[in-house]
Design a protein around this nucleic acid. Structure first.
Lengths: 339, 339
DNA sequence: CTGTTTTCTACAACCGGTTTCAGAAACCGG
DNA sequence: CCGGTTTCTGAAACCGGTTGTAGAAAACAG
């Protein structure tokens, strides 16, 4: 037998569809208690549950949101996803998850599909996005929240979660300086990404504030992945003068770098100090445990979803919120070699 | 301006809704070419895209499926998710992702919500499920595919992806025996899970086939997590006689075990050999790289989604498919200490 | 016991599509 | 030029809900 519909309930309770609809939506101000009771009983007896679909058709609300990430396999995401999901769940929302696989056009396809499905809003946490995505979404006036993206003049339906890299990175720099380091390198993410630039610049500024000229800092462009960190190690070794401390744009590259350095006979932190960024769970018990700039990822997820819900209520908003970073000191940093 | 509807297109093309609907669904056998052209032009001019929602209401198909996992953070899942997603995408499906967080009732809530949203089917890949979930789904005759779950007499709407642990585990056992090991231990998953039992039994059977009595094998019940592996190491040390080779129910526990052993002053593989299961990407460059029984996870994802699509077409099926495991030899296994 | 007001419920239209069916238009042979 | 096919298109009902409105029933005043 197919699911009972609202008409079945109405028939059984001897009332009209509208009456059933009213008790469902709690709109019972002018309803006789016994009528309400009859309807409720019919609902219970039939095990009736309203169809989300039909409801959405009139209400224009699907109670559905989408989360676009580059790749669920990236350890950065799980906690973010949990944060998003927990808030979503508690507001009756379900989440479409889409991996862009770092592919801009795949992402755009997903977005189109999601628009056709009338999702109420979209969370974009894929670094490999383009402004074209936003245009598409703005055009259809779909509320959107973007993580760590730079937007001059954001449209009213777009919210932004910013990351303030300064406090964490500044603390890292001061920590390294205090240990005695003077020669630094940075392994960045792909420099066409705003987030990679922000991290690099926060690092350089913090150094400059302490009298270290950015031009003395070796910058190696990486790819945010483990193998990028590995490759970077080789570049470091080919430098005329090895830096004694390296800050990597994320933890994955730090992992690759530490491994590659071990393979090259260098020991972390004795021969070289390494600081990562993200504080993914893996690095807490790496060999050695990684010193890193932590991002509150669960919080980011929650915040993003909450912002989206806000955007859904009172659209002309375009909010901006920031999360802070902080330094987590572990054992991949030490005084530079005497040399 | 709101999205154009089919009525807008019809008006603009000077035809009826039905005609537009027909060109949309490609049902143009009896249509004059110029009519079709007019409609297509109107569609293009308005940038019309049909509403998935309205369509689903009549067609009873939402082109939506759900994937239930225990925790996206578990490195087992990403590749599975990719497999599922790739097949889904290429068939016009979008995927709801739900984390159960190892919580049976949270999972059940998700399932209820998904049923109300009329998903076409559900993939269950959360080990912490119960048969109650299936009952709910079967009752609503929602096609379901379950990974590695034991079901006597599966209902026709349920498909199962089985894992044949034997080939991989057998190879692992033979590998260890060839190295000279005779004293074995197994760190299992929670033994109320069918999958944990299957892994344990495959191990014991393989040993038995080579003359090692299961009763001589130390079995420690773990939890499939890193800390479970850590705890298991302590139990191993308290044994009257240390085994020389340990097979863990998954890689996470192997990681914990290796780390704990290092902390206890033991070296892998010199003092003890360790074999994991899953071949998650992390273990390829652990210290030492882990020997492990590999599961074709991307394939599992693809296979599961394909099975679901099949189930959607010709329901009275209840298929069963198996994937094979195989041994990946790395450096966490060696000859036992001379002692 | 009426007339008015208040309380309650049903009817009907609508959301944006699909599908059945009937009838109009074009084509054809005689 | 007429009747019978064949080809094409539109009207209407439906999917499963929500909502505005009209009008019946109950309550109340006179």
């Amino acid at each position: 037998m197919p699911r009972p519909t609202i008409a079945d309930v109405a028939r059984r309770a001897g009332v009209s569809k509208s009456t059933v609809s009213r008790v469902l939506s709690g709109n019972v101000e002018y309803m006789r208690p016994d009528t309400k009771a009859r309807v409720e009983q019919a609902i219970a007896e039939l095990g009736y549950r309203p169809s989300h679909l039909a409801r959405s058709l009139t209400s224009k609300r699907t109670y559905t949101a989408a989360l676009l990430v580059s790749d669920v396999g990236n350890p950065f995401y799980p906690e973010v996803i949990h944060g998003v999901e927990d808030v979503a769940l508690s507001h009756g929302y379900d989440i479409y998850l889409c991996n862009t696989n770092y592919d801009v056009s795949r992402g755009l396809n997903s977005i189109r599909s999601l628009i056709d499905r009338q999702v109420d809003g979209i969370l974009i946490m894929s670094s490999s996005m383009t402004d074209e995505w936003l245009e598409e979404l703005v055009q259809h006036s779909i509320p959107t929240v973007v993580l760590d993206w730079v937007l001059t003049n954001p449209p009213p339906t777009v919210g932004i979660i910013g990351v303030d890299y300064r406090p964490g990175i500044q603390a890292a720099v001061e920590h390294l300086l205090a240990l005695g380091h003077r020669r630094f390198a940075h392994v960045s993410g792909p420099l066409h990404l705003p987030t990679a630039l922000a991290r690099r610049d926060a690092f350089l500024h913090a150094l400059a504030a302490h009298g270290i000229n950015p031009s003395q800092v070796a910058i190696i462009e990486g790819n945010f992945r483990v193998d990028g960190g590995r490759a970077a190690m080789d570049e470091l070794l080919s430098l005329p003068q090895m830096p004694t401390a390296v800050f990597t744009g994320n933890d994955m590259m730090a992992m690759g770098l530490v491994r590659a350095s071990r393979a090259r006979g260098l020991q972390v932190p004795r021969d070289i100090s390494v600081v990562g960024l993200d504080d993914i769970w893996l690095v807490a018990d790496m060999e050695p445990p990684l010193t890193t700039v932590a991002l509150p990822r669960y919080e980011i997820g929650q915040m993003a979803m909450r912002m989206l819900l806000d955007l859904l209520k009172r659209p002309p908003a375009s909010p901006y919120q920031q999360v802070e970073t902080r330094l987590v000191c572990r054992q991949s940093t030490a005084a530079p070699p005497a040399a």
